[in-house]
């Protein structure tokens, strides 16, 4: 835990907790993600992948939201723990 490890949401493993640091998207998609709670500082948990690998479901602000990799690869954060 000494060096914070920055990863993209799309690369998170099931059970990972990630504290969001940046959203590299613009326009409507960015605003929609903000509204859903994907804001800097928010803690996101990787819940599960769809049977075909994409989209991935995330737990954010007490709700479960699925994102495609186009979006989840543009959200970065600090990996907090490895899933137990």
């Amino acid at each position: 835990m000494s060096i914070p490890k920055i990863i993209k949401l799309v690369n998170g493993e099931k059970g990972n907790l990630i504290r969001i640091t940046s959203l590299n998207l613009d326009g409507v998609m960015r605003r929609r993600l903000l509204d859903l709670g994907f804001v800097a500082g928010a803690i996101v948990e990787v819940i599960r992948k769809s049977p075909l690998g994409d989209p991935i479901a995330f737990r954010v602000s007490q709700t479960t939201i699925a994102l495609r990799k186009e979006e989840s690869s543009r959200i970065e954060g600090v990996l907090m723990t490895d899933g137990e």
Partner: peptide, 9 residues
């Protein structure tokens, strides 16, 4: 009530 954080927004 089960997801108040997002709902309060």
């Amino acid at each position: 009530a089960t997801s108040l954080e997002r709902n309060f927004n």
